[in-house]
Design a protein around this nucleic acid. Structure first.
Lengths: 240, 240
DNA sequence: ACCTGAACACCGTTCAAGT
DNA sequence: ACCTGAACACCGTTCAAGT
């Protein structure tokens, strides 16, 4: 045992060895932030966690992004791009078939990529898509297809918004269930529990009749397509 | 100046005077929690803030609610009740007129009460409505109206879900805009800025044609009703 | 049985450094 | 110009008390 006559603390705090000058930049921070979101989720993204994964001091991040919100905005821009790139482009289809494909594709992209959903449909503290070029050219094209089908400019706009809102609405419900860690395939009623179901059925006959069709998420793929087709048929009824 | 020979700290920490025994209970905590949510919003609800408003120690709250989530669940139960109470009951209407009223009423309640929206459409960490009595009797009734109109049990269920998802989808978009402190009436394009609009119009003619119809929230009241009517017309097309 | 503060591990962010 | 830790005001929650 060594004596310690001058009361110098035995445990000298281990100072992280200083990282070299150009080791950090916006790109590597963004990439690691996305990796974190993919492994956990957007709610779990924090500056300290991110810094630890990168092996840098927390405050180093603030040199590149002055606030967490600035980082989120940069992520949002990248996510919007990725989303629009992933959305396929069809041609030569009738207007109704076009929108069936367009929105089921959109929904598929959201459901296959939770980070995209979190940024583009769930969250609120990241402000909406800045009308950049590609986004506007898409909108221009889609609303044009509805006008070519015979809808007025106003009805075309409203029609697009209705299909879009319905689509993101189903995505939101599924994402909520996933975030809660519940099984998205769960039904709403205990259809296999016969005593319970017959008790329900005694009081609520229509729920017994429909019990197998209610899902926690409110929307299987075919349920979604049913709803989308209702909007499309409803739009068709406006065409002279 | 008084001397302080025994090094007793001059500033004795002001101890809060102990609150009497029965001063706190679940009801007053819940009431204050709702007041806080109404004045700020659900995101701003924290245990320390709530305790300070009640004039009690933070930890006192944990005697009545073991976690913050337990408090949120209790609030959710109360909010669900309030929501279902507020939702009017019609009768003697045709099925299509019934659902027009039912869902515009639902939307009106959400938009008039942000706390209800936050619990029932925005949030995710509070798990969904436990199928209590009144909720199930409502569902039983509504799906019955669709079946009476001539839809199959499956289509009736899907139809209800489509209208419901579309409705909460529009509410979510509006709440997001409000939470960001933006003006919900703002249009998407700067329609009054003629130079900018003509530049947009040169590249995106359909957006120029429809520019006045795009809103940040994606849904004015009439836009919403347009979409709802599309679903209703789409459902009508399934009736023999 | 009910109410209390101290304490802990987390946040986002600021600041005054070091190199 | 870039990287650093100490420090601050916030969280939710635990614990060992006090009455």
């Amino acid at each position: 045992m060594m004596s310690n006559p001058q009361a110098i603390p035995l445990e000298v705090p281990v100072r992280r060895k200083r990282n070299p000058r150009g080791s950090l930049n916006k790109e590597v921070i963004l990439a690691e932030a996305f990796r974190l979101c993919r492994e956990e989720n957007l709610d779990e993204l924090s500056m300290p966690k991110l810094a630890k994964r990168l092996g840098v001091g927390v405050t180093s991040l603030y040199w590149y992004f002055h606030t967490k919100d600035e980082l989120l905005q940069a992520m949002l821009a990248q996510v919007s791009d990725e989303f629009l790139q992933a959305l396929p482009d069809h041609s030569g289809l009738t207007w109704d078939e076009h929108f069936r494909r367009y929105f089921t594709d959109m929904r598929r992209i959201f459901l296959a990529n939770d980070v995209i959903s979190d940024f583009l449909v769930m969250y609120t503290h990241v402000s909406m898509i800045a009308p950049g070029g590609y986004f506007m050219s898409r909108l221009n094209r889609e609303v044009g297809i509805l006008m070519d089908a015979g809808l007025s400019p106003q009805d075309a706009t409203r029609g697009y918004q209705a299909m879009s809102t319905y689509t993101t609405g189903t995505v939101q419900k599924i994402r909520q269930v996933r975030l809660r860690g519940e099984n998205p395939n769960l039904k709403m009623f205990p259809v296999d529990d016969l005593p319970v179901m017959s008790a329900i059925g005694a009081e609520y006959p229509n729920l017994l009749l429909t019990s197998e069709f209610w899902h926690r998420t409110y929307s299987t793929d075919v349920d979604y397509e049913f709803g989308l087709n209702r909007i499309i048929e409803g739009l068709r009824s406006l065409i002279p």
